[in-house]
Design a protein around this nucleic acid. Structure first.
Lengths: 132, 132
DNA sequence: TAGTTATTGTTATAATATAACATTATGTAA
DNA sequence: TTACATAATGTTATATTATAACAATAACTA
């Protein structure tokens, strides 16, 4: 069960925007889109993004500096993310595979270091772009 | 067998610097360090970095915007990378696990999208930082 | 209701990365 | 060897992404 987080005004405005977007949004494009709602400065955006990541409502696609809403009911917190990214059209999809997350959550390296978090980004061609 | 790439002057200067560093270097710290060798502009650094990534001599740690030499003889090209990152001391280690790379190389998601490349970043505490 | 913590608003600036264009070097095939 | 193509370089300017610092409010909690 995901803990209910009462989003603040800015957090809600920004989450709603990201949540409605089928694809990841970049910070300054978010900023541009919420100017009419009174959010005027980059920091207001980044602070909301940081919080939303912390509580697991969104993820950052590191290789793209972009933010996407989490649609994976099993990831309660920003601790385990896996995405596929099309190298042509840049479509990003969150991968939710029980097998994969189980494998990675239990992965231990040679040093026995145990991980609390991971981020995986797969690159390839999506179906559409394969056919072109 | 890795194809021999004859690095150009700038590529060699920058690769040598990264290769000697036990930890990832950031682009502007590289720039600062090679100024005495005649490399003066960010673009000169970024171009060399792009090429070195392309031929698999270095990798980019996306979550840190930093670059590290590849010490994994089995990754011929910048197509499959896995790192562990300590969240306290920021130590980065390239993971070379045959099991992991086999698992990920063969991973297929629901859509059957086949991936040509992936990047995985694990976060946790390294041994030293665990003991503190 | 006082004290604490989180969030906000704001200005300035730091850090990361690319565009555009002219030039030089390198590879390759006639 | 020459001509052509391709890759790498040098340079200036600028775009993009992100944080520092500080003052003011709002929300939580004992």
């Amino acid at each position: 069960m995901r803990k209910e987080h009462n989003l603040t005004k800015n957090q809600k405005i920004i989450f709603d925007l990201i949540d409605k977007s089928p694809q990841p949004l970049k910070a300054y494009s978010i900023l541009y889109n919420v100017k009419k709602k009174g959010i005027k400065a980059p920091l207001q955006v980044y602070r909301a993004l940081d919080k939303l990541i912390e509580i697991g409502k969104i993820h950052k696609i590191e290789s793209r500096n972009a933010f996407i809403a989490c649609h994976n009911s099993s990831c309660q917190v920003a601790k385990a993310t896996a995405f596929s990214i099309c190298e042509i059209c840049e479509k990003v999809t969150e991968i939710s595979s029980a097998g994969l997350s189980k494998y990675l959550a239990n992965f231990k390296d040679k040093d026995g270091m145990k991980y609390s978090k991971y981020n995986l980004e797969f690159f390839g061609l999506c179906k559409k772009c394969t056919l072109k």
